[in-house]
């Protein structure tokens, strides 16, 4: 029987914690850029202008998303750290309260009162074990939840950039009217389907295709709305010119 290596599993979970940034970044990069391309193609006739504007939007988007992820994770981490410190201080100052709280939680999870009491008593022989178990069981907090702001920011920025290149590269390489946007949309659709499928695979879901199709449907909806908005505002550009 293959034994589970907790250290390896922990590393895997740590890597997986970046999945949110990767999926969010790629999806946002693909969708935003495809939306920009569709919208500008509706409003602006020159291919190079559309490509340039989309490039600028990509750079701004990647920086913005990276900074947003960094700041978001940092704020979350600070709040979480403060909460963990409070819980640990409480456990040290009022061990009885923590013991009683943990006892109640374990009973709620189906353990007999006597069984739960023995577990808590055993845990109490190590204040660290008592505190970390209380954090997880009583408050749903865990040291593993503390994120890495810089890493999250970088991963998000790169993911957005990679996602943005998906529609942007075909659009820039195919210099034929209509085919440029068609190529961009095809690459977008394929990538979003792939991201959805990948997410389903990570979650060990059987309906990975459905997950892919859901992403695709969202992408198509966003692109269509973007294009329609572009068409709607194109008369404004003509007036200004």
């Amino acid at each position: 029987m293959a034994a589970i290596d907790p250290a390896e599993k922990r590393r895997l979970f740590e890597r997986l914690s970046s999945v949110r940034e990767i999926v969010f970044g790629v999806q946002d990069g693909v969708l935003t850029t495809a939306g920009v391309l569709c919208g500008l193609s509706g409003a602006v006739s020159q291919h190079s202008q559309v490509a340039l504007a989309a490039l600028a939007s990509t750079a701004a988007g990647a920086l913005s998303m990276g900074a947003g992820a960094y700041l978001g994770t940092r704020a979350e981490t600070e709040v979480l750290r403060a909460e963990l410190e409070l819980v640990r201080a409480d456990a040290a100052a009022k061990p009885y309260t923590v013991q009683e709280g943990l006892l109640d939680e374990l009973c709620k999870e189906g353990l007999s009162r006597e069984g739960a009491y023995r577990i808590v008593r055993l845990l109490s022989s190590s204040p660290r074990a008592l505190a970390s178990t209380a954090e997880a069981k009583m408050f749903g907090l865990s040291g593993a939840m503390i994120g890495r702001p810089a890493l999250d920011g970088i991963v998000m920025g790169i993911a957005f950039l990679a996602g943005a290149l998906v529609p942007l590269l075909p659009y820039m390489l195919i210099a034929l009217p209509r085919y440029d946007l068609g190529g961009a949309l095809a690459a977008t659709a394929l990538t979003l389907f792939g991201v959805g499928y990948f997410e389903g695979w990570l979650a060990h879901r059987d309906d990975r295709w459905r997950s892919g199709v859901r992403f695709l449907a969202i992408a198509m909806s966003a692109a269509a709305v973007g294009y329609l908005i572009g068409l709607a505002i194109s008369p404004l550009g003509a007036t200004a010119g």
Partner: peptide
Amino acid sequence: SDLVLIFFYPRDFSFI
């Protein structure tokens, strides 16, 4: 006995 002291407590197998 002369007096009876009754003390109620919440639960067995607890910490206080």
